[in-house]
Structure formats: structure tokens, C-alpha cells
Simulated assay, not measured.
Amino acid sequence: MDYGWCRCSTNETKQDIDRQRRELKKLGIKEENIYWEYVSGSKDYKVEWNRLLSVLKCGDSIATTEVSRLTRSTKQLCEIIEIARTKQIKLIIGTFVVDCTNEIDPMTQGMLLMWGVFAEMEKAIISQRVKSGMANAASKNIAIGRPKTTIENLPSSFLRHYPKYVAKEINVSELARLCDLSRQSIYKYISIYSQKEVGSYVK
């Protein structure tokens, strides 16, 4: 089975994750086999990534657009390569195929790790720029950070499909796919909406 993996750091880059999904579809990956998540590339635990790993079987493949979508940590990249070896699957990065069903040649492994180093370095540069921008904004008393999510600004797609979840017609994963949101965001929005419902009962 061929699976796809997409990742963005935040849902502010929705356009980018849609591009990744389109590119994976062009490679022949079916929509239902594409796993995606809004999470930092260096975070140790990724919910959807672990769901993907749980369904893999020997001979399957994971396709992604670039190494940085898998991780921005060289250490984690080494762990991913080891997982691929253990499960005997293929990693497809863009048009580059890493066949982990057999022994990886030193040149291929060296190239992968070099990509990992560049991805990690890019993250460090971005982080440095963000910190510099935040410091500059703070010095000018400019408010920084995204607006707090409240019941008033929940996504319309969530409000439209949430009743189906309440009626147990769909589960969290299906709700996330219908809303084109991550499971983490869905759990957050459910919590916010539930607080409103509790408040209405108290009144």
C-alpha cells in the first residue's frame, strides 16, 4: 500500500499543506491514504504520524514532498530511517526513492542525513528570525501572537459538521477530515464549544 505524509507547523500555512497533498495525489497516492498534521517538525510525538506508522506493513511505502515534512531534526530522521528498516518499507521523498526493504547504500544514507542537517539548520534560522521580529514588535509595543480562539471565532466548517459528531454519526477523525483541520484543533474546538454548552445549562 502507498501512503502519503504532509506536515506544516501551524494551520496558518494551510495553503502549503494543500500543495503537498496535491503533489502526493499526482504521485498516485489516494486521498484516503494521505495522513497530515499541523505540528512542529522537531516535536517528538506526532499523533497522525503515529497513526500512519501503526497501519504500515512490510513492502508499503510512505511518500512526502521533502525531508523537512518528515522532520526538522537529524536525530529524528535517523530514527525514521531505522523504523523504515525495521518495518521494511520504502520512503519516497519527492522523486527520490529510499528502499529500506534492502540494505541502504552509504551514499543514499549520507544524502538523507545531509538533507536532515539542512532542514534542521533552516528551522534554526527561521526561529532566530521569529525571535528577532518578536523582540522588535515588543520594543514598539505591538501586540504579538495569534488571537485567542473563542466561541465567537470558531471555524464555520467546524460549526457546520459538529452536530454530526454530537449525534455520533461521525468520529473525531472523520470530523477533522470534513473540516480540513487537524485532530488537535478539533479537540480544542470541541472543548471550547462544550464550555459554552455547560454554561448554557448553568444559566
Rank of each mutant, 00 (worst) to 15 (best):
P163G: 07
D99H: 04
S139D: 05
S127T: 06
V39C: 06
G28M: 04
K188P: 00
R7V: 01
K164Q: 07
I142K: 09
Y38C: 02
I190W: 05
V130A: 08
N11W: 02
S132C: 13
S127W: 08
A119E: 04
R160A: 13
T95L: 13
Y45T: 15
E37Y: 04
S9L: 12
I151H: 08
R183W: 09
Q20N: 08
Y35D: 05
K140N: 13
T65Q: 15
D2Q: 14
G145Q: 05
S139V: 01
C78L: 15
S185H: 11
Y189Q: 01
V166H: 10
S68G: 00
K123L: 13
Y162A: 14
D16L: 12
I34R: 11
I190M: 07
I93N: 08
M1T: 02
S9D: 10
I80R: 13
K30S: 13
Q128H: 13
T65L: 03
S139M: 07
V198A: 15
N102R: 15
Y189S: 12
K168R: 10
L175P: 01
E12R: 14
L70F: 14
G199F: 06
P147N: 07
R85I: 03
K196C: 05
I83C: 13
P163D: 00
R183S: 05
V98K: 04
K75R: 07
L113N: 08
E79K: 11
E122V: 05
G28A: 01
E103N: 11
L27R: 15
T150N: 03
I89Y: 03
N171F: 14
I92C: 07
A176N: 00
V39D: 03
Q109D: 14
E197P: 04
Y3R: 09
E23A: 12
I170G: 00
F158P: 00
A143W: 11
R19D: 07
V39I: 04
I92F: 11
I93S: 01
V130R: 11
A124I: 09
N136P: 08
V117Q: 04
Y201R: 04
T64D: 00
S127Y: 04
S132W: 08
W36A: 02
P163Q: 01
I80L: 10
S132H: 13
K203A: 10
V198H: 13
E169P: 00
V198T: 02
W36D: 10
S68Y: 13
V97Q: 11
S182L: 02
E37R: 02
W5F: 02
Y38W: 06
M134C: 00
M121C: 12
R85A: 07
